[in-house]
Design a protein around this nucleic acid. Structure first.
Lengths: 192, 192
DNA sequence: GACCTCATGTTGACAATGTCAATATAGTCG
DNA sequence: CGACTATATTGACATTGTCAACATGAGGTC
């Protein structure tokens, strides 16, 4: 290896991403990432302010990917119910496929988004995608409430599957449909 | 302080509980707890196998408290909808009132319940309380699905409030009612 | 080419933490 | 009283985040 790595930042992020699901974010060490990237233990500090900053970049990438998946799932002539069911499936699959990343993205103990603008923006963009999909199920006066229920529901289910083993990927499709039906039932119910 | 503390275990747990919300569980150190309890750094190991075991005891206590709150909220002649709305409020209040404890209880990175029988039993008992309350909303054939939606919903909302600042305690009552209505709408919807 | 600047890289160092090991204390029992 | 044992302290060690000092080399200027 030449003195200058030439691609140190990317190598560090790649190393971190590779280690994340095995170690979990709390146990992931900067030294471990540096070693895996063929760098010394101080090298990450040339590219990231501290450990949190490196994790925040992983978070940003995660939201970008999630948002992209939601966006690219749009189909011409989609019925809102079908669109929502598929979006729920995408969200759940994302969480179940990369549990440690999901936990990092939606937790504030290790990465506080208020301190990381770019990651926060990526989060907002991804969640706006989901929100719009859910809101399409509702009368205009109820979109905020229905979006909130939709997000809470799919997020809660995903988190509980990851953290408590509530259910596995085999149930995903069935549950996505159940959640879409739930939102539909709420959107149709008479307002309080 | 006499050589033998006389109440070391309880003092350690009290110290941990006091420090938990300030530090967060990941940053909470056993040494800090020991110091706060007036003990040396090795003393916790006389009472707990390791750091995780001490945290697991906090988790057990947390579930016990949550379960007790749900149980003691029962009122004679309660309508299922009212009972559910109040239960949702209790769950959300618990999470918002002790966010770090909530995160610890419902996360498996720091405490894996499969390794801590008593904590796991306390969790099952508390969640069975919630499940029964939600299930009372549903026809007998649908109780599993409705319970799953109920838990996912209230859990997701609580978690998102804690981790993303989705909403604050001022909205709790209104949202509890919304969630109860959502479950009601689902329970009444024609099955797929 | 020599010199300067600066971003990036290495190594030494330090404090903090989890946990192991050796030693000390004191309560209980026969 | 001696033996035993649970509990407590202190020494030690490996690991980790991060600071500081020093080293490297690419790019720019003269």
């Amino acid at each position: 290896m030449a003195y200058h790595h030439g691609n140190a930042r990317a190598a560090l992020l790649a190393a971190a991403a590779e280690l994340l699901e095995g170690e979990g974010a709390a146990r992931l060490s900067l030294r471990q990432c540096a070693e895996r990237a063929g760098l010394s233990r101080q090298a990450p500090y040339n590219h990231f302010a501290d450990k949190e900053a490196l994790l925040a970049e992983l978070v940003r990438e995660g939201y970008q990917r999630l948002g992209e998946r939601l966006r690219s799932d749009a189909r011409p002539g989609d019925a809102p119910l079908d669109r929502l069911a598929r979006a729920a499936g995408i969200y759940i699959a994302f969480g179940q496929g990369t549990p440690a990343l999901f936990r990092l993205m939606f937790g504030k103990e290790l990465v506080d988004l208020s301190r990381h603008d770019e990651a926060r923006q990526a989060a907002s963009a991804a969640l706006a995608e989901l929100s719009a999909i859910v809101a399409a199920m509702a009368p205009a006066t109820d979109t905020r409430e229905v979006s909130l229920v939709g997000w809470s529901l799919v997020h809660g289910y995903t988190s509980l599957c990851i953290e408590t083993g509530l259910e596995g990927p085999a149930q995903r499709k069935h549950r996505s449909d159940l959640f879409a039906r739930t939102i539909e039932a709420l959107a149709r119910a008479p307002a309080a």
